[in-house]
């Protein structure tokens, strides 16, 4: 189990005038899970007896995989999803499009199953906006990689 707090989606929890206010940030702009997550938070608060509550969205600073806790990274790997490498997309890649045709070499993504670094990207986009599709060339299993963002 990985919580939305572990993923860095919950940015703030505070009381404002007798009312709990939960602030969340979307992972990706179009992630359909954002609305589900907000609805779930609201339901959990209602069930816990907080009929009055607010769930708000905050865009800045933009969510980054750097906010995913160490424990959550380990549990992602246990679940079969390779955790994101260090360094968010903004800090890992200087915005210089003249380098577009020269891919910046990234640290190898390790297979969450056998640990091999001999893996290959099948597609930069996967089953959810935050994941890429990889395959391990050692154990031949496909796996998801949580993209650094």
């Amino acid at each position: 189990m990985i919580s939305i707090v572990d993923l860095g989606i919950v940015r703030d929890v505070e009381w404002q005038d007798d009312e709990p206010v939960i602030t969340v940030t979307p992972t990706y702009c179009g992630c359909p899970a954002t609305e589900v997550i907000m609805a779930d938070i609201g339901r959990a608060l209602t069930e816990a007896g907080f009929a009055r509550h607010r769930v708000e969205i905050r865009l800045a600073p933009a969510w980054t995989t750097d906010w995913i806790t160490a424990g959550a990274r380990a549990r992602l790997a246990e679940f079969g999803i390779a955790p994101p490498g260090a360094g968010s997309v903004a800090t890992a890649r200087v915005i210089d499009t003249s380098a577009l045709h020269r891919r910046i070499v990234r640290a190898p993504v390790r297979c969450p199953r056998c640990g091999s670094a001999h893996t290959r990207e099948l597609s930069r986009f996967g089953s959810t906006p935050c994941k890429a599709q990889y395959r391990c060339e050692h154990c031949l299993e496909p796996f998801d990689y949580f993209k650094p963002h």
Partner: peptide, 22 residues
Amino acid sequence: ARIAEIAAKAEKEVVYHAERSA
């Protein structure tokens, strides 16, 4: 400020788009 924060969020996604299309 609103334009700035939306742009900052969107730009991280568009980096991936540009890499893929290139």
